[in-house]
Amino acid sequence: MTSPYDVLGVVPGATAAEIQSAYRKLAKKLHPDLNPGDKAAEDKFKEVAAAYDLLGDADKRKRFDAGEIDAAGAERPPRQGYYRDYAGGPADHPYADASAYADFMDGDDIFADLLRRSQKGRANRRGADLHYRLEIAFADSIAGATRRITLPDGGTLDVKIPPGLVSGQVIRLKGKGAPGGGGAGDALIEVEVLADPRFTREGDDITLELPVSLGEAVLGSRVRVPTATGAVTMTVPKGSNTGTTLRLKGKGAPRRGGGFGDQLVRLKVVLPSPPDPALEAFVAGWAKGQAFNPREEA
C-alpha cells in the first residue's frame, strides 16, 4: 500500500504546516465538487483525504511513524479511523464531506467559498428516497389492503395498497425516507403481486377455470365460485360443456375510469374417478350418444 507521505507528496520529516499545505493544494485540485462526474478524481481525493486524516492528526502520525499502524494492511479492529481503513474506498472518515473542513473555510479564496456553499447546500438538502419491495397476495391487489413492512433498522411502515395494483407499480409514502435538513425523503415501495393458481388477470378482467361434474353440466345447477373478493353463487345452464364461458359482472379488477371488470368463468367437465360402472353401462346403451361424433360437429 502506498505510504500516506507519498500520497500527499511530502517527506516523512515534513512539518504539520507542510502537510496541511500539501493536502490543501491537492484538495483544491481533486475535490468532487470541482470535478463533477470524474470518478478517478473522486477516488484520488478519497485517498488524499485519508492520508491527511492520518498525518494531520499528531497522535495518529506518531503511531504510524512508530510502526503501530501498518499502512501495508495489518489487521485492525473496525472503525479505528486509520489510514489503511480509508485509502481503499468510500470510507466513513472525517474528510468524506465538507463537515471537517472548518480549518479551510475561513479563507477568502474560491476553494473556501466552495466549501462554505457546499456545506450550506448539504444542510438544506432533502433526505434521500429509500426503496423497498413488497410482495402482496393477488386478492390484495384487486381489493386493496394494508400491509406492514419491516425496515433494515427494525422499524416498520404500514403500507396502504390501493385496489387494482399490478406488479412493478410503486407506492410513494411522503416523508418516510431518510431525514435531511430540507425535510425527509420519501419511501418508494415497489409492489410484486404473487401469482394465484386459480386466477389470471387479463387487463381489467379475471379468468378462472371451474371444474363441474357431468350432472351439473347436463342438468344445470347452482355452484359456488371463488372470486378475488370472496365466493359467490353462479348458475350453470343446462347442457353446458367444457370451454363454456360464463361472465360474473363486476367481479374483475378496478377500472381506471371507475367501475370494475368482469370475471370470466370457463367450465371444465370432470368425470368421476374411479369410473362409475353405472355411468359406463348407461353410455354403452345410449344409442344417440353412440351416434354423436363431436369431431364432425366441430
Rank of each mutant, 00 (worst) to 15 (best):
G73C: 02
F138K: 06
A281I: 07
K46I: 06
D140C: 10
A102S: 15
R266Y: 07
Q119Y: 09
S99C: 10
N124F: 12
P163R: 05
P162L: 14
Q169I: 14
F138N: 07
V7L: 01
G121V: 03
T227E: 07
T235E: 11
G81W: 05
A72H: 04
V265W: 09
E216K: 05
V218F: 09
F64E: 04
A278F: 05
P163N: 11
D103Q: 12
A17Q: 13
P272F: 03
R122M: 12
V48H: 00
D92A: 11
G88F: 03
V10T: 02
P94H: 01
V232S: 07
L30Y: 09
R116G: 04
N293M: 03
A50S: 14
D109N: 10
A112K: 01
A27M: 06
K62D: 15
G56H: 02
P36D: 01
A98M: 05
T156S: 13
R222Q: 12
M234E: 07
R126Q: 15
E18W: 01
R172M: 14
Y86R: 02
P162D: 14
A66H: 02
G252L: 11
E297C: 00
V170S: 10
E296P: 00
Y83N: 02
P274Q: 02
D186N: 14
I171Q: 14
G258M: 10
E296I: 08
K160L: 13
D59I: 13
P77T: 02
T244Y: 03
Y132G: 03
Y82C: 07
I19R: 00
K44Q: 15
E42C: 05
E280H: 05
G183C: 14
D129T: 11
G182P: 09
V223L: 02
L8Y: 00
